[in-house]
Design a protein around this nucleic acid. Sequence first.
DNA 1: GTGAAAGCGCTAACAG
DNA 2: CTGTTAGCGCTTTCAC
Lengths: 336, 336
Amino acid sequence: MASIKDVASLAGVHRSTVSRIINGEGKFRSDTKRKVERAMAELNYRPSAIARSLATASSNMTGLLVTYYTGGFFGEMMEQVQAELDQHDKFLITAQGHRRADGEREAIRRFHDLRCEGYILNSRYLSDDELRELAQEPTPFVLLDRVVEGLESRCITFDHSLAAKMAVDYLVEQGHSDIACISGPRNRASCNQRYQGYVQALKNAGLALDPRLTVEGNYGRESGYLAAQKLYHTAPEMTALFSCSEEMMQGALQFFHEHHVEIPRQLSLISFDSIDLCATMYPFVSSVHFPISDMAQVAVGLLMSQINQQDACIQRHFEPELRIRNSVNRREFVSG
Amino acid sequence: MASIKDVASLAGVHRSTVSRIINGEGKFRSDTKRKVERAMAELNYRPSAIARSLATASSNMTGLLVTYYTGGFFGEMMEQVQAELDQHDKFLITAQGHRRADGEREAIRRFHDLRCEGYILNSRYLSDDELRELAQEPTPFVLLDRVVEGLESRCITFDHSLAAKMAVDYLVEQGHSDIACISGPRNRASCNQRYQGYVQALKNAGLALDPRLTVEGNYGRESGYLAAQKLYHTAPEMTALFSCSEEMMQGALQFFHEHHVEIPRQLSLISFDSIDLCATMYPFVSSVHFPISDMAQVAVGLLMSQINQQDACIQRHFEPELRIRNSVNRREFVSG
DNA sequence: GTGAAAGCGCTAACAG
DNA sequence: CTGTTAGCGCTTTCAC
């Protein structure tokens, strides 16, 4: 592989001249420039990003931590992040956390080993304390969809609880009172927040919280199916169902179809959604939208401004949006 | 950020000793080792992968070219590739081709700039010639789901045509004769192969190829919906439909549901599938499975063996698999 | 067993 | 405008 030296000697100039021409610094006689350019072309020369990193003490790399790649959600995130990063001419390094604090730690270690200039972390298993500790290190990072006290300026946030509440409020407005919920694993903060939004909405509406009406899944499709099955048998009075994830709604819908439950005539449905899976279901399912891709985009902007030590005024908080489709029926008040 | 020098001076030894200890080369007095290890811990030292790359002339990075990140298909690929790479302690660099030869070229350029040791290319827009040229360069690469004459040993292949044929054969076996097809953009090789498989199956069965019965989509959900709509109106006699992609089948199914076409009573469905989307539809849709994730896994193995210049005996060709679910009805022979 | 010295491919003052 | 020199953080001979 040709190095800058080869180019220099072929062009009959010094390495530093070649370097300057590559980086467009200063002025040169047009013929030196031509000679160098020709030499580069002839040798098919491309500067080594690695050597450059070492010399400039800046890797031009950004680390992105996700939980895993499959499922669409993270793809959406990566798509945005990469697109933004491309604009800034940065390399994207991704790593998976594998649903374990350990995995996330290891991922960050890899970023660090590569001397990434900054990280975008969709961390779900590292503790607040550990994150605050990480903030002591010199490498800037941004937390995507997480709030950690003391790290506010690095957090891109979304109010999961409010979002869930909006969804359930809508069901209430439509006259429903026997509203079931398929929650996620409640030991994960954002999952629990979604569940709490459900609880809150019921409370505000003066409805009792019936434990039979909520079943916990794991965000996967299969668990949604199972949850629907359980609800179908143990809570036949439910007239509406709220799912904390789109995949679980997919599974639930599958179950209801198989058992010929007519949607929305017999059962109204609403779901959390981030990659518009709800718009691919039959029937289209109403949802509260979690704008992960907008958030990812902003995350890059925020990180860049931190790297450049400038105080960009960036909107860090995102609002839920209700997307009404045709899976919810108005329920008339039934006396007695 | 602490460097090897800092560690050395804190431990009171020379840099090279630290280096040896890090890499476990040679023997050392146990107390030097202890001193060094303590110094590393104290300084929270991690060797710079970049400096290491430069010194050893091996970046430990592998480039993966995909078309884009969204949609599940590429996530599946990345998941496997990253998992395998982790095992080999390599960094994964990804880049998108953006459905353009230019984009793919640019992606490979980035890999090259980073001096990746090898590439895994799911290239769809670079010409065979260009790929053969690339093969002249010293960096090894593997072609994922592509066959290029002269580059056989680098190709992980799948017979799209055979797969499509198997799907349509199955429909024929079940007694269907008015079989429609939603194809992909036929200017893309693998898409056209799938279409040709459909053509071949009809031919073998002695069925005429009716142009009204095939409509071209773009692999996206929306285009499947539109295709179904078109077929519904212009070819009401169809009793079975084969889709060249799972997303298009999703869209088509949506249309049929909306128009109360009963599946499979009135219409039988079969689709290409790679990430089991067909198993999330209602009803479950039968499919031919394109084992992209197995192929991705093998790609890493093949690449590694090329990087290490060893001749691993690796299975490079993959077979389609029919996955019968409940979307196809047997059609009894109707005389007259 | 460990230190000295050179070098990986590049950039960045500093001269001239 | 261009060459010289030193150095980024590490590895790798080669001595001792």
